Simulated assay, not measured.
Amino acid sequence: MSDALWVVGDTCPAARPYPGVRTLGDVHHALSVGELRRVRLVPSLGVGPLDWDHLADRVAGAGLVGSVTLAAPPPRPVARTEVSVPAQEDVLVAAPRNDHGTVEFALAVAEGNRIMRDHAAGGRQLPGQLLVEAAIQGLTWAARELYPAERDQPPVQPVLYGFGFEFHRPLFWLPVTVRITLSETGPPDPRRRPLNAEIAYLQQDRTCARGHVGFQACDPRSVEDTESVQSRAVGAPPPRAARRTPGE
Protein backbone atom coordinates (compact mmCIF):
# COMPACT_ATOMS: atom_id res chain seq x y z
CA MET A 1 0.00 0.00 0.00
CA SER A 2 1.40 3.40 -0.97
CA ASP A 3 1.98 6.09 1.64
CA ALA A 4 0.45 9.50 0.95
CA LEU A 5 2.78 12.47 0.60
CA TRP A 6 1.48 16.03 0.46
CA VAL A 7 3.27 18.17 -2.13
CA VAL A 8 3.38 21.91 -1.43
CA GLY A 9 4.84 24.85 -3.33
CA ASP A 10 8.44 25.88 -3.02
CA THR A 11 7.39 29.15 -1.38
CA CYS A 12 6.24 27.11 1.64
CA PRO A 13 9.59 26.37 3.36
CA ALA A 14 7.94 26.07 6.79
CA ALA A 15 6.31 22.85 5.61
CA ARG A 16 9.66 21.04 5.52
CA PRO A 17 9.72 19.93 9.22
CA TYR A 18 6.32 18.22 8.98
CA PRO A 19 6.24 14.48 8.26
CA GLY A 20 4.36 13.55 5.15
CA VAL A 21 4.87 16.97 3.53
CA ARG A 22 7.48 17.80 0.87
CA THR A 23 8.00 20.81 -1.34
CA LEU A 24 7.61 20.45 -5.08
CA GLY A 25 11.33 21.04 -5.58
CA ASP A 26 12.18 18.33 -3.03
CA VAL A 27 9.92 15.86 -4.84
CA HIS A 28 11.56 16.58 -8.20
CA HIS A 29 14.98 16.07 -6.62
CA ALA A 30 13.89 12.81 -4.97
CA LEU A 31 12.63 11.55 -8.34
CA SER A 32 15.91 12.42 -10.04
CA VAL A 33 17.99 10.45 -7.51
CA GLY A 34 15.55 7.55 -7.15
CA GLU A 35 14.48 8.19 -3.55
CA LEU A 36 10.71 7.91 -4.11
CA ARG A 37 9.07 4.49 -4.22
CA ARG A 38 5.58 3.22 -3.42
CA VAL A 39 4.16 6.64 -2.63
CA ARG A 40 1.00 8.51 -3.60
CA LEU A 41 1.53 12.23 -4.23
CA VAL A 42 -1.29 14.60 -3.26
CA PRO A 43 -1.26 18.30 -4.29
CA SER A 44 -1.60 21.02 -1.68
CA LEU A 45 -1.20 24.79 -1.58
CA GLY A 46 1.38 26.34 -3.85
CA VAL A 47 1.04 23.65 -6.52
CA GLY A 48 -0.92 24.43 -9.68
CA PRO A 49 -2.35 22.28 -12.50
CA LEU A 50 0.68 22.88 -14.75
CA ASP A 51 3.03 21.91 -11.92
CA TRP A 52 1.09 18.67 -11.52
CA ASP A 53 1.23 17.92 -15.24
CA HIS A 54 4.98 18.44 -15.22
CA LEU A 55 5.34 16.20 -12.18
CA ALA A 56 3.36 13.44 -13.93
CA ASP A 57 5.75 13.71 -16.88
CA ARG A 58 8.74 13.38 -14.55
CA VAL A 59 7.27 10.29 -12.89
CA ALA A 60 6.67 8.71 -16.30
CA GLY A 61 10.15 9.68 -17.49
CA ALA A 62 11.70 8.05 -14.42
CA GLY A 63 9.84 4.80 -15.15
CA LEU A 64 7.96 4.98 -11.85
CA VAL A 65 4.37 4.81 -13.08
CA GLY A 66 2.61 2.38 -10.75
CA SER A 67 5.12 2.84 -7.98
CA VAL A 68 4.63 6.60 -7.67
CA THR A 69 1.01 7.58 -8.23
CA LEU A 70 -0.54 11.02 -8.42
CA ALA A 71 -3.87 12.08 -6.96
CA ALA A 72 -6.24 14.24 -9.01
CA PRO A 73 -4.69 17.55 -10.10
CA PRO A 74 -5.28 20.69 -8.05
CA PRO A 75 -8.29 22.85 -9.01
CA ARG A 76 -7.69 25.50 -11.64
CA PRO A 77 -7.82 29.17 -10.55
CA VAL A 78 -10.27 31.49 -12.27
CA ALA A 79 -9.04 34.17 -14.65
CA ARG A 80 -7.77 37.30 -12.90
CA THR A 81 -10.46 39.43 -14.57
CA GLU A 82 -13.16 37.45 -12.77
CA VAL A 83 -11.89 38.63 -9.37
CA SER A 84 -10.41 42.00 -10.39
CA VAL A 85 -6.73 41.44 -9.62
CA PRO A 86 -3.91 42.66 -11.89
CA ALA A 87 -1.75 39.50 -11.93
CA GLN A 88 -2.81 35.89 -12.48
CA GLU A 89 -0.43 34.59 -9.81
CA ASP A 90 -2.35 36.65 -7.23
CA VAL A 91 -5.66 34.86 -7.90
CA LEU A 92 -6.78 32.93 -4.81
CA VAL A 93 -10.10 31.54 -6.09
CA ALA A 94 -10.11 28.10 -7.73
CA ALA A 95 -13.03 26.01 -9.02
CA PRO A 96 -15.82 28.13 -7.49
CA ARG A 97 -19.33 26.70 -7.43
CA ASN A 98 -22.67 28.24 -6.53
CA ASP A 99 -25.20 26.23 -4.54
CA HIS A 100 -28.41 28.22 -4.01
CA GLY A 101 -26.67 31.41 -2.97
CA THR A 102 -23.72 29.89 -1.14
CA VAL A 103 -20.44 29.92 -3.05
CA GLU A 104 -17.58 27.55 -2.23
CA PHE A 105 -14.11 27.55 -3.74
CA ALA A 106 -10.71 26.03 -3.15
CA LEU A 107 -8.00 28.40 -1.96
CA ALA A 108 -5.31 28.65 -4.63
CA VAL A 109 -1.81 29.91 -3.81
CA ALA A 110 0.43 30.18 -6.85
CA GLU A 111 4.18 30.54 -6.83
CA GLY A 112 4.96 34.26 -6.86
CA ASN A 113 1.78 35.30 -5.03
CA ARG A 114 2.57 38.77 -3.70
CA ILE A 115 1.01 38.25 -0.24
CA MET A 116 2.88 35.00 0.36
CA ARG A 117 6.06 36.65 -0.86
CA ASP A 118 5.67 39.67 1.43
CA HIS A 119 4.02 38.21 4.55
CA ALA A 120 4.85 34.51 4.92
CA ALA A 121 8.63 34.56 5.39
CA GLY A 122 9.54 32.03 8.08
CA GLY A 123 5.92 31.50 9.09
CA ARG A 124 4.35 28.10 9.69
CA GLN A 125 0.80 29.17 8.92
CA LEU A 126 -1.05 31.07 6.22
CA PRO A 127 -0.93 34.83 6.81
CA GLY A 128 -4.23 36.40 7.82
CA GLN A 129 -3.90 38.97 5.06
CA LEU A 130 -4.02 36.14 2.52
CA LEU A 131 -7.34 34.94 3.96
CA VAL A 132 -8.80 38.44 3.92
CA GLU A 133 -7.76 38.87 0.29
CA ALA A 134 -9.33 35.48 -0.52
CA ALA A 135 -12.61 36.70 0.97
CA ILE A 136 -12.59 39.87 -1.13
CA GLN A 137 -11.83 37.96 -4.32
CA GLY A 138 -14.43 35.35 -3.45
CA LEU A 139 -17.21 37.83 -2.78
CA THR A 140 -16.30 39.60 -6.02
CA TRP A 141 -16.83 36.36 -7.94
CA ALA A 142 -19.98 35.55 -5.93
CA ALA A 143 -21.58 38.97 -6.47
CA ARG A 144 -20.98 38.76 -10.21
CA GLU A 145 -22.31 35.20 -10.33
CA LEU A 146 -25.44 35.84 -8.26
CA TYR A 147 -26.19 39.37 -9.50
CA PRO A 148 -24.90 39.51 -13.07
CA ALA A 149 -24.85 42.81 -14.94
CA GLU A 150 -27.22 43.46 -17.79
CA ARG A 151 -26.05 42.60 -21.29
CA ASP A 152 -23.28 44.91 -22.56
CA GLN A 153 -22.87 46.38 -19.06
CA PRO A 154 -19.63 46.09 -17.03
CA PRO A 155 -19.56 43.56 -14.16
CA VAL A 156 -20.33 44.85 -10.69
CA GLN A 157 -17.55 46.16 -8.48
CA PRO A 158 -17.65 45.55 -4.70
CA VAL A 159 -17.18 48.63 -2.53
CA LEU A 160 -16.50 47.61 1.08
CA TYR A 161 -17.71 49.61 4.04
CA GLY A 162 -17.10 47.25 6.96
CA PHE A 163 -15.59 43.88 7.80
CA GLY A 164 -14.33 41.69 10.64
CA PHE A 165 -12.47 38.37 10.90
CA GLU A 166 -11.92 35.82 13.67
CA PHE A 167 -9.13 33.26 13.47
CA HIS A 168 -9.92 30.31 15.74
CA ARG A 169 -7.18 27.94 14.55
CA PRO A 170 -4.10 28.40 12.39
CA LEU A 171 -4.42 27.31 8.77
CA PHE A 172 -1.45 25.44 7.39
CA TRP A 173 -0.36 24.18 3.97
CA LEU A 174 -3.14 21.63 3.51
CA PRO A 175 -6.02 22.41 1.14
CA VAL A 176 -8.49 25.06 2.30
CA THR A 177 -12.13 25.47 1.30
CA VAL A 178 -13.70 28.92 1.53
CA ARG A 179 -17.49 29.21 1.85
CA ILE A 180 -19.28 32.53 1.25
CA THR A 181 -22.97 33.24 1.72
CA LEU A 182 -24.35 36.53 0.41
CA SER A 183 -27.50 38.24 1.69
CA GLU A 184 -29.11 41.53 0.73
CA THR A 185 -29.17 44.17 3.46
CA GLY A 186 -31.36 46.78 1.78
CA PRO A 187 -33.27 47.61 -1.35
CA PRO A 188 -31.13 47.85 -4.50
CA ASP A 189 -31.13 50.75 -6.91
CA PRO A 190 -29.85 50.86 -10.50
CA ARG A 191 -26.36 51.82 -9.35
CA ARG A 192 -25.71 49.65 -6.27
CA ARG A 193 -26.94 46.68 -4.28
CA PRO A 194 -26.16 46.52 -0.52
CA LEU A 195 -24.94 43.06 0.51
CA ASN A 196 -23.43 41.16 3.41
CA ALA A 197 -21.01 38.27 3.02
CA GLU A 198 -20.54 35.60 5.69
CA ILE A 199 -17.27 33.73 5.17
CA ALA A 200 -16.01 30.44 6.63
CA TYR A 201 -12.57 28.89 6.09
CA LEU A 202 -12.44 25.09 6.38
CA GLN A 203 -9.41 22.83 6.58
CA GLN A 204 -9.58 19.08 7.23
CA ASP A 205 -13.36 19.50 7.71
CA ARG A 206 -12.86 21.97 10.57
CA THR A 207 -13.89 25.62 10.54
CA CYS A 208 -10.67 27.45 11.37
CA ALA A 209 -11.69 31.07 10.74
CA ARG A 210 -14.74 33.20 10.02
CA GLY A 211 -15.37 36.63 8.61
CA HIS A 212 -18.10 39.01 7.57
CA VAL A 213 -17.97 41.80 5.02
CA GLY A 214 -20.50 44.54 4.38
CA PHE A 215 -20.29 45.94 0.86
CA GLN A 216 -22.18 47.32 -2.08
CA ALA A 217 -22.12 45.68 -5.49
CA CYS A 218 -21.87 48.77 -7.67
CA ASP A 219 -21.91 49.69 -11.30
CA PRO A 220 -18.21 50.62 -11.71
CA ARG A 221 -19.14 53.73 -13.69
CA SER A 222 -21.02 55.11 -10.70
CA VAL A 223 -18.01 54.34 -8.49
CA GLU A 224 -15.75 56.35 -10.80
CA ASP A 225 -18.19 59.26 -10.83
CA THR A 226 -18.51 59.26 -7.04
CA GLU A 227 -14.78 59.01 -6.47
CA SER A 228 -14.14 61.80 -8.96
CA VAL A 229 -16.53 64.13 -7.13
CA GLN A 230 -15.12 63.22 -3.71
CA SER A 231 -11.50 63.56 -4.81
CA ARG A 232 -12.17 67.05 -6.16
CA ALA A 233 -13.87 68.00 -2.90
CA VAL A 234 -10.96 66.72 -0.82
CA GLY A 235 -8.31 68.24 -3.05
CA ALA A 236 -9.90 71.68 -3.40
CA PRO A 237 -8.01 74.39 -1.47
CA PRO A 238 -9.96 75.97 1.42
CA PRO A 239 -11.50 79.38 0.67
CA ARG A 240 -9.26 82.30 1.56
CA ALA A 241 -10.34 84.56 4.37
CA ALA A 242 -10.89 88.18 3.35
CA ARG A 243 -7.75 90.19 3.91
CA ARG A 244 -8.16 92.78 6.64
CA THR A 245 -6.12 95.94 6.98
CA PRO A 246 -4.80 97.19 10.32
CA GLY A 247 -7.38 99.08 12.28
CA GLU A 248 -10.40 97.34 10.78
Results as ranks from 00 to 15, higher is better:
residue 242 A to E: 11
residue 108 A to I: 02
residue 31 L to Q: 08
residue 149 A to H: 04
residue 28 H to C: 11
residue 191 R to Y: 07
residue 210 R to E: 11
residue 179 R to L: 06
residue 144 R to V: 08
residue 125 Q to R: 10
residue 143 A to W: 07
residue 114 R to I: 00
residue 35 E to L: 12
residue 88 Q to S: 07
residue 27 V to L: 03
residue 12 C to E: 13
residue 126 L to R: 06
residue 49 P to I: 10
residue 146 L to D: 04
residue 140 T to D: 04
residue 148 P to S: 08
residue 155 P to I: 12
residue 209 A to N: 02
residue 40 R to T: 15
residue 220 P to W: 07
residue 150 E to L: 14
residue 191 R to K: 13
residue 97 R to Q: 15
residue 205 D to W: 11
residue 220 P to N: 10
residue 82 E to W: 07
residue 59 V to W: 07
residue 240 R to E: 10
residue 159 V to I: 08
residue 105 F to R: 03
residue 99 D to V: 14
residue 218 C to N: 05
residue 147 Y to W: 10
residue 33 V to H: 10
residue 126 L to V: 15
residue 74 P to V: 10
residue 225 D to W: 05
residue 177 T to K: 03
residue 37 R to K: 07
residue 85 V to T: 15
residue 171 L to V: 13
residue 230 Q to A: 15
residue 231 S to A: 14
residue 99 D to S: 12
residue 138 G to S: 01
residue 49 P to W: 11
residue 137 Q to S: 01
residue 21 V to Y: 05
residue 152 D to V: 04
residue 76 R to N: 03
residue 7 V to M: 03
residue 187 P to V: 14
residue 138 G to I: 00
residue 23 T to I: 10
residue 174 L to Y: 12
residue 218 C to T: 09
residue 144 R to W: 04
residue 29 H to I: 00
residue 32 S to E: 11
residue 200 A to D: 08
residue 234 V to W: 12
residue 68 V to P: 00
residue 191 R to I: 04
residue 130 L to I: 05
residue 109 V to C: 06
residue 209 A to G: 03
residue 209 A to F: 06
residue 203 Q to V: 13
